[in-house]
Simulated assay, not measured.
Amino acid sequence: MDMDIHRESQLPQAGPKSLICESGRVLFGHFDGPVQSLGVEHFRYINAMDKPHGSLARRFHFKQFQFVSVCTPRFLLGVALADIRYAASGFCYLYDIEANKLVETSWLKPLALGCIMAPSPWDGYSRLGGKKGQISMEIKAGVWQLRIATEQIDAALTLVPPLNSLPMAMCNPTGYSGWTYTQKHNALGVEGSLIINQEPLALDEALAGYDFSAGFMRRETSWRWASINGRIQGALFGLNLAAGVNETGCNENVFWINGQRHLLGPVQFDFTRERSGHKSREWRISSLDGKVDLTFHPLNKRQERLNLWLLKSNFRQYIGYFDGAIEDASGRVHRLEKVLGLTEDHFALW
């Protein structure tokens, strides 16, 4: 049976107008820019016996999430929205770097009631909120704007990429007939206003990164992830590494130096999951080709465990410092020394 799967070269292609063609063909591989439309309406979604899925499966099997992190010399913010159809969830945390203190606001909406999600990484609007406040993300021609209104945070921010900087944008096959589109861009400049506990903060040194992910993902999945928005040796440095997802064809591992994108090979995460009452231990993140050799020292975390019969989530996002080195394709070694960033260990049944 013709599955209408088009396996593209692993070399980056121009960002297509639509990820899924009118024929139902899905474009896989890396792209040099965002897709303007996912084209989900054209997708021919079939089950393991090659029969078309019904409308309920098409609705409830499609998942989408967005994440933005903003780092200033004093605070780190993490903001997430997720629509997994059975429910929508979101969180916004504020981490005080000097005090090593984290406070958060979170939302959970059954059947995603009241949640709006942008239909593409090029243009759209996402929002989730309630009595605890509201978070929203608006995308205009690929540029992200973040709004936060909680007890601790009042923010209206625009994420500004360095000149000619490319995001990491890719699509891989998932499971038997699904697909996952992921787009990330780190070490972006920040403009606008940020008020923390009624105190305005300067944004001259603030850096940010975003994650847009959507698709017909595996029902049960688990991943490890690392992210940095910072500076090394005076240069803007962004990092995104992952293992456990987006590895069937190409991967999402990448770093940026002063806006220049460098794609990387597969990486491994070596760590011990903490037990109750035990302190988080050091992580090691490395690649078999030796180009990535990092250690991560956790300081604090945002965690959540949900066991809701049809849905399960065991989520831990750590804040800490990275040390080590990364080598680019030209052989230049970029060294990290106590660079603040994030890691994540996540299991989901959705």
Results as ranks from 00 to 15, higher is better:
1 M>C: 03
2 D>I: 05
2 D>Y: 10
4 D>M: 14
5 I>V: 13
6 H>Y: 13
9 S>D: 08
14 A>V: 14
15 G>L: 08
15 G>H: 08
16 P>H: 06
19 L>E: 05
20 I>Y: 05
21 C>N: 14
22 E>P: 12
23 S>T: 15
24 G>D: 07
26 V>D: 03
27 L>P: 04
29 G>M: 07
30 H>M: 01
37 S>R: 14
39 G>Y: 10
39 G>N: 06
40 V>E: 06
40 V>H: 03
42 H>S: 13
44 R>S: 13
48 A>T: 13
53 H>V: 05
55 S>L: 14
55 S>Y: 02
56 L>H: 03
56 L>Q: 07
58 R>G: 07
59 R>F: 09
66 Q>I: 06
69 S>A: 10
71 C>F: 02
72 T>H: 02
72 T>D: 09
78 G>E: 05
82 A>F: 01
83 D>M: 08
84 I>Y: 14
85 R>G: 02
86 Y>Q: 06
90 G>K: 07
92 C>P: 04
102 L>M: 14
103 V>G: 04
104 E>Q: 14
105 T>F: 11
108 L>G: 09
110 P>L: 13
117 M>L: 14
119 P>W: 06
122 W>M: 11
123 D>G: 06
124 G>V: 07
126 S>N: 08
128 L>P: 02
129 G>N: 09
130 G>H: 08
134 Q>H: 03
135 I>F: 02
135 I>P: 05
138 E>K: 15
144 W>R: 07
148 I>L: 14
151 E>K: 12
154 D>H: 14
157 L>K: 09
158 T>Q: 15
158 T>K: 13
160 V>Q: 11
160 V>K: 11
161 P>D: 07
169 A>N: 08
170 M>P: 00
170 M>H: 06
172 N>H: 02
175 G>A: 01
178 G>L: 04
181 Y>C: 00
183 Q>E: 15
195 I>P: 00
196 I>P: 03
201 L>P: 00
213 S>W: 03
214 A>T: 12
217 M>V: 10
217 M>F: 04
227 S>K: 05
227 S>L: 04
230 G>D: 12
231 R>V: 13
233 Q>I: 01
236 L>V: 01
244 G>K: 06
246 N>F: 00
248 T>S: 05
251 N>R: 07
256 W>N: 01
259 G>N: 02
264 L>I: 01
264 L>C: 03
271 F>W: 13
275 R>M: 05
276 S>A: 12
278 H>A: 11
280 S>P: 12
281 R>S: 13
281 R>A: 12
287 S>D: 08
288 L>P: 03
299 L>K: 14
301 K>G: 00
306 L>P: 00
307 N>C: 07
311 L>M: 14
313 S>M: 13
315 F>L: 10
321 Y>P: 00
322 F>A: 12
329 A>Q: 09
333 V>K: 09
335 R>Q: 13
338 K>W: 00
344 E>D: 05
